[in-house]
Design a protein around this nucleic acid. Structure first.
Lengths: 198, 198
DNA sequence: TTGACAAAGAGACTACGGTCTGTAAAATAT
DNA sequence: ATATTTTACAGACCGTAGTCTCTTTGTCAA
């Protein structure tokens, strides 16, 4: 990395850090790009050379969730005996992470961003760790007879994703007014019941 | 209705009709309020006395869905024998209606609007026909032993709504690229399986 | 070393949703 | 009949996300 690139990456980090801090303090909608660039002593030009949009700033933050899946959750679920317990624990810890580390405002903003067709979608990227992990659980659960065999593992992933999104969307429009960690259980257990072989 | 109110309601209708027509032609995001008022020969002032926001214009359109539930779907599901079949038919026809009569762009816009905390939420209004109808089905299904009794009917409504929203959200971010009517089956059948008594 | 080029950034500008203020005329009170 | 208030509306104005243009300065080839 040469001198110019180095300076650029410092600028990017400076903007990103300040922006995320502001978002957490005041909520995404109450922070303006002008404010961010003013505080960081940069400019609109700098901001938009590093980020495609105001949303994108913490899309990066959100992507950390995948690292969390791979680094932390994978090890934990391996300790569970059954596939359905792996799934249960995975979903529970995921919701706990979203509730405690991301919060509803960031979640809401991500969900809003995904609805904008002019922007890149993160949810639609097929190679997310989330998708691979779920797929592995279902494949394994089918092999050992826990899950249904009349539908494919990838169909079960689809079902699971839609249910997850329904819950997170609902949590977002309710402005995080209920405990995600507690409410996930009924919904996911029902789903798992529907996906189990009998 | 006096003369002034009459003229006002004409203006409102003129704006509403033109706006919805434009939305259908060009998509919600590609229509500006300036364009709507210019075409209708009205003004920003007129627009915003009748509608709280650009979104609200077809929130009214969306609310027609409830009339559809009450007027059409209620009769149809009454012909089904079992509660779970009522639910299946209801959900299927609902998705068919959304796909064919509303379309994904309107659906997307509604879902986006709901994520804006500064706006009134339609989904959170507790007395929607949708909620009552679902509740009735679950209560009935519990009485006749089809559905689980370890959770309440209203909890089942909550589960059902979240699943529905997950599907519609997913359909929206996929820009309506798959058939809602076809894809609903796997998801809802799985859910119903999870809600059935055994 | 120097000159062409490109990357990073500064900041004026645009587009557009939404607000505010002023006004004409209809409704209502006296 | 006249005065007062209210309503529907016109359109100037504002806030903010995002774009465009221009400048600076580091990079690299000769």
């Amino acid at each position: 990395m040469n001198k110019r690139q180095h300076k650029a990456s410092l600028t990017k980090k400076k903007i990103s850090d300040a922006a995320i801090k502001l978002f957490e303090e005041k909520g995404f909608r109450n922070v303006t790009v002008d404010e961010i660039v003013q505080i960081t002593g940069t400019s609109k030009g700098a901001f938009y050379t590093h980020f495609k949009s105001k949303h994108e700033v913490f899309l990066n933050k959100f992507k950390e969730i995948d690292r969390y899946y791979e680094d932390v959750l994978l090890d934990i679920i391996e300790q569970e005996e059954t596939s359905s317990n792996k799934l249960k624990v995975f979903l529970k810890l995921q919701m706990k992470y979203i509730q405690e580390d991301l919060g509803w405002d960031i979640t809401r903003t991500i969900y809003e961003n995904e609805l904008d067709p002019s922007r890149e979608s993160y949810f639609l990227m097929e190679d997310r760790p989330l998708y691979r992990i779920l797929n592995n659980i279902f494949v394994e659960g089918q092999k050992n007879g826990e899950f249904r065999n009349d539908i494919t593992a990838s169909e079960m992933v689809t079902v699971c994703l839609r249910v997850m999104r329904g819950l997170l969307y609902d949590w977002s429009i309710n402005e995080g007014s209920y405990s995600l960690e507690e409410e996930q259980e009924l919904l996911f257990f029902t789903m798992i019941r529907g996906l189990s072989s009998n």
